[in-house]
Design a protein around this nucleic acid. Structure first.
Lengths: 346, 346
DNA sequence: TTGAAAGCGTTACCAG
DNA sequence: CTGGTAACGCTTTCAA
């Protein structure tokens, strides 16, 4: 006798329990419960009724062992200090549940996913990985590839083989630059996030190229590390510049940095958008707070997650399916942190 | 042949693979890998060496099936719009990993945990549940109890049978009231969170009782729903009150609401702390931002999670272990949103 | 100290 | 349409 389940609790029902009660085979119960079309409607109803009556829940682990499918998706999240990841997570939890998938939380925070963590992927037989931002170590990525565990990156386009869903960052940056140009801005700054993430790079590229189309260069480029503090530091730097040399429009590649910048400027007594226009990216809820009211590009969070799960499902169901990169356009949200016309200029 | 693992990937090693290579029994490999003392040091070394060499990872699911222990902890989180839960989550992920446990994400957001979700607990044989805020439906709680799945609530003291770890909310509220009294405040308001959560109730009670000790009553009580928007609405209400009738000290039972209140007051041109003192609770990172700088009680997040996992571990290892409620004191963090002395009063 | 075999709960295959 | 049986990968009991 191998198993000694939790002492005290009543023994759980199994397919065999149900089968015995109904006088059918265990395999019949199993098939009926999964809606196998070969089972007669009558038998199916009897089985289902009994299952409900007794509160039977199939053992997902045993099922995995037998079928090779766990219904588990590994989830890795970026640092929670950026509310964007929290929003993404909530979306992921509810959408996964709706599809009958469970999320196994692998990692949250800065820094790469440790190799040791990658073991978990195998140990728990996850059907796939959903990775937002954080980089998978190449070793871990190798493990996934070797064992055919599909990987989908959300909000980042991968260097390594993996599928991805991201906002069309280039397009968003492009659009924001357009908005600022129309408002008659002359000198521009960019506050970068993580300087080697595709997200930051593409947003910057879209922005800069739109300016170049007007023969304008970005005057200042600073790294803000995708954090509030980084934004705040950048904001202080702008505040300390002599007014003539200070850019009159700033693009923070993440709203969370825009918030830091705005706070630093406010403390320095510099008025937004009267003296400086600020635009951000992500469309996090906090950006809509009245004290910030950030003009931004809203990430299509729900769609990002939905398409991410689609890609995962496709590669789970048809292992050969090639990698795919999906870009979704975000919507520009115009609020009050950037001025809209020349008249309003100082 | 039941199983058809992922097509394409090399077949994974199993205890049997290793056993065959070494010319020993599978049970020997199993025992050696788990450090069973009965295995000779020499055999153990050989097994370990081979396991490392081949990157062998035991199948956690098969292990669960045989042993009854999954190493899985179900995690349920409150709404991510309150950064406190994000902080708690990061802490939970890293501490769980350090203990060799994995987190299965059950739920995140407002609203109770659905009954259907509770099925997951059984299906995946979780060893225990860590629940922050959100209420477990009584049906779900019943399921846990019947199957002896230990439940620990973090940041909330349960009505139902379950263990709990929380900040000493009463004490925190008490301390904050003391601070405001010392500063010479005369009239007080409380902005409640979720009016029937133990968290909100205890914070309010501690605060009010300290005032009562000085024969002072709380003048205004409003519900803020533990959200920024709720705080903002409350702040607007305060701003609209005639100055003579306006409380000169406000206790928001959550920092996130304090932020909303402060923004509303700032917009109305009311100066903090010169005209009104604000204190919050939780000690979230955003509260330290220079534009807010909230005087608050810092929750001992890391300790909360650590003790929570301790309680869970205890009940997993010794199923009979009785429920326990642990209260941890938070530290008061004095910043600039509340004035400190009479002089500073308007 | 080690081996052999049974069993965990499910699904898949092959008969009927 | 349904039943029987083997198999998934591991742990555990029992025997040696």
């Amino acid at each position: 006798m191998a198993n000694s389940p939790r002492t005290g609790g009543e023994e759980r029902d199994t397919v065999i329990t149900l089968a015995r009660i109904l006088g059918v085979a265990a395999s019949t119960v199993s098939r009926a419960l999964r809606g196998d079309p070969r089972i007669s409607a009558k038998t199916r109803r009897r089985v289902e009724a009994l299952a409900v009556e007794r509160g039977y829940a199939p053992n997902a682990l045993a099922r995995t062992l037998a079928s090779g499918r766990s219904g588990l998706i590994a989830l890795s999240l970026g640092p929670m200090s950026n509310p964007f990841y929290g929003e993404l997570m909530q979306e992921a939890v509810s959408q996964a549940a709706a599809r009958g998938l469970r999320l196994l939380l692998l990692h949250a925070g800065n820094g790469p996913i440790e190799d040791q963590t990658a073991q978990t992927l195998l140990q728990y037989q996850v059907d796939g990985c959903l990775i937002t931002s954080a980089e998978l170590s190449s070793h871990a990525a190798g493990i996934c590839a070797a064992h055919n565990v599909p990987v989908v990156m959300v909000n980042r386009v991968p260097r390594l083989h993996a599928s991805a869903v991201a906002c069309d960052n280039y397009h968003g940056g492009h659009a924001l630059a357009g908005l600022l140009l129309e408002a008659g801005h002359q000198s521009f700054a960019i506050v970068r996030g993580n300087p080697d993430s595709s997200t930051s790079i593409e947003r910057e590229r879209g922005f800069a190229e739109r300016l170049r189309g007007h023969e304008i260069d970005v005057d200042v480029r600073v790294d803000g590390g995708s954090t509030y503090d980084g934004g705040f530091a950048a904001g202080r730097m702008f505040a300390e510049m002599p007014k003539e040399r200070r850019p009159d429009a700033i693009f923070a590649v993440a709203d969370i940095m825009a918030m830091g910048i705005m706070d630093a400027l406010r403390i320095a007594g510099i008025r937004v958008p009267d003296e400086v226009s600020i635009v951000g990216f992500d469309g996090i809820a906090q950006g809509a707070w009245p004290t910030y009211s950030i003009t931004s590009v809203q990430q299509p969070t729900a769609a990002l997650v939905a398409r991410g799960l689609d890609l995962l499902a496709a590669r789970i169901d048809r292992p050969g399916t090639p990698d795919e990169v999906v870009l979704l356009r975000g919507e520009m949200v115009i609020r009050r942190s950037a001025r809209l016309s020349l008249q309003a200029a100082a």
